[in-house]
């Protein structure tokens, strides 16, 4: 039986999470990918207040497909997280508690996860149709002009993720590979 974690995350709820653990997420999160990150950071650097409060938020790196009639959102799987790396430490400093994407993070991001007590999850890349089934509502809350790259508020229910980098330095990609790599001398 997979454990369900409530969103928004809290300091207490993320502390026990270990790299490699599988969870279901239920609650609210925000979407943001390349263009939204760039604009958000540019606004912050020019001294503006961010358009949404980021404290304890979970950011999902996704550019969803358009919704079919009667559905909240179209297929919505994770995009490659590494492209957000240059911006991520600043957002963690503002209180972002969780990140969802796929792929490697930089050493700087992994360090910032430890420093600010945050967690990086992966969702299954390419399983966008199934993941969309776990999204119960979607609403654009900032940067509507960015289309698929706008910031959306999503409500999710039993949204499956794996902890990649926990707040203690654990790394599921490194651990997994170590177990199966065959080294030829």
């Amino acid at each position: 039986m997979t454990i369900t974690i409530q969103l928004p995350l809290t300091l207490e709820s993320i502390k026990p999470l270990q790299a490699g653990d599988v969870f279901l997420l239920t609650g609210r999160l925000l979407t943001a990918r390349d263009a939204a990150h760039k604009r958000l950071i540019a606004e912050l650097e020019s001294g503006q207040k961010p358009p949404i409060d980021l404290k304890d938020e979970t950011l999902y790196y996704v550019g969803p497909a358009p919704a079919k009639l009667g559905q909240p959102l179209g297929p919505a799987g994770p995009t490659t997280s590494g492209r957000m790396d240059p911006f991520t430490p600043q957002l963690l400093k503002l209180g972002v508690r969780g990140l969802i994407g796929k792929g490697y993070r930089s050493d700087r991001v992994k360090q910032a996860l430890i420093e600010h007590n945050a967690v990086y999850f992966a969702a299954v890349g390419g399983a966008a149709a199934l993941l969309a089934r776990q999204i119960t509502s979607a609403e654009v809350v900032a940067y509507a002009d960015l289309g698929t790259e706008a910031i959306r508020r999503l409500e999710v229910e039993d949204f499956p993720v794996i902890v990649v980098n926990d707040c203690h330095g654990g790394d599921a990609y490194a651990d997994g590979r170590k177990q199966f790599e065959i080294i030829h001398e």
Partner: peptide, 30 residues
């Protein structure tokens, strides 16, 4: 050989089936 690996492959195959039945994209990045 990996259990987690098999779960990932099963998920992707289930996703392909579901997308075809529902007539929705398999991946949001078309």
């Amino acid at each position: 050989a990996s259990k987690t690996g098999r779960i990932m492959l099963t998920t992707l195959l289930d996703n392909a089936d579901y997308a075809e039945v529902e007539q929705i994209p398999t991946c949001q990045d078309t």
